[in-house]
Amino acid sequence: MSMAVVALVTSCTAQAAGGGGASPSTTGAPPSSSSAPAPTTPTTEPAGTPTTDDKPSSTPSSSPTSAQPAAKVLMKDGDESEKVRELQARLRQVGYFDRAPTGFYGTMTAGAVKAFQKKRELPQTGSVDETTWQRLVGMTHKPTAAELKPSTTNKLDTPDPRCMTGRVLCISKESRTLAWMIDGKVVSSMDVRFGSENTPTREGTFQVNSKSRNHVSTIYHTPMPFAMFFSGGQAVHYSSDFAARGYNGASHGCVNVRDRGKIATLFDQVKVGDKVVVHW
């Protein structure tokens, strides 16, 4: 089945440029009026002697005071690194990050950091400074490899009770995941995408009634590799569009998988007659 039309939005970030102001001229003849007191005239002030009203202009824009906050920031919006991945994994351990670590510091990570800072009564900058980092490290453990790079981008949902016995494709619309389970244990898991509002994926308990490794939709004439049909024309299958576009699109009712390797392995393990549960 083919995918719905995808709207691709490109966002740009503009950097604001700052300019310095011109200094007042110190040339020209002195004031002819005797009412202008000489001691307060900038041109007669000895170098290095501050007056009572020149403090703001006496601090250069590149002073250590203004540079200190930037120097103390360890991670911030726009960064991408394994350290950011660790940050996200640690935030997930304490309930502030609800998806798999990506290694990219975006708006969701900044929001999670800000929420963590608010709870600890720290300055809510959304960036990670030394104090924020040490507080988080003290509350968490070093993330495992599975925590840093879990099997799904989305966090697995609690299995539906119908998934706890037998061989089951347990599919959650809430977490947008598929868990291949045998006798209540998760064998493998993967991200999935569903039908649109106009072509929804059916919910309920079904079974795999047929399989087609190199299937092509007879309605939309598009490839549906590793198709496992469970309700009429609806099937679990690999989607190159899902792999390329993510959740910006939708299926015509099928359960799309974007990891070709995982669904290829799953296809070989699932048998006709195995249970399929689609739930919220």
Score class of each variant (00 low, 15 high):
residue 251 S to W: 08
residue 257 V to S: 15
residue 251 S to H: 06
residue 253 G to I: 07
residue 255 V to P: 05
residue 255 V to T: 14
residue 230 F to E: 03
residue 227 A to L: 07
residue 239 S to C: 14
residue 227 A to F: 01
residue 240 S to E: 13
residue 255 V to H: 08
residue 242 F to D: 03
residue 240 S to A: 14
residue 251 S to C: 03
residue 254 C to H: 03
residue 232 G to I: 04
residue 244 A to P: 00
residue 257 V to T: 14
residue 251 S to Q: 05
residue 255 V to M: 07
residue 238 Y to Q: 04
residue 237 H to R: 10
residue 228 M to F: 04
residue 254 C to R: 10
residue 233 G to F: 00
residue 246 G to P: 09
residue 245 R to W: 14
residue 241 D to R: 03
residue 231 S to W: 01
residue 244 A to Q: 14
residue 256 N to C: 03
residue 254 C to L: 09
residue 246 G to M: 08
residue 237 H to W: 09
residue 253 G to Y: 02
residue 237 H to Q: 10
residue 248 N to R: 14
residue 246 G to H: 05
residue 235 A to G: 11
residue 246 G to L: 05
residue 228 M to D: 09
residue 237 H to C: 09
residue 236 V to N: 03
residue 257 V to R: 00
residue 237 H to E: 04
residue 238 Y to P: 07
residue 229 F to P: 08
residue 244 A to I: 00
residue 246 G to Y: 09
residue 230 F to Q: 10
residue 235 A to C: 13
residue 240 S to G: 11
residue 233 G to P: 00
residue 228 M to W: 08
residue 243 A to H: 12
residue 227 A to Y: 01
residue 257 V to F: 00
residue 230 F to V: 07
residue 245 R to E: 15
residue 248 N to D: 13
residue 243 A to P: 02
residue 249 G to C: 02
residue 235 A to P: 07
residue 255 V to W: 03
residue 257 V to M: 13
residue 247 Y to T: 12
residue 250 A to H: 13
residue 255 V to L: 02
residue 227 A to H: 05
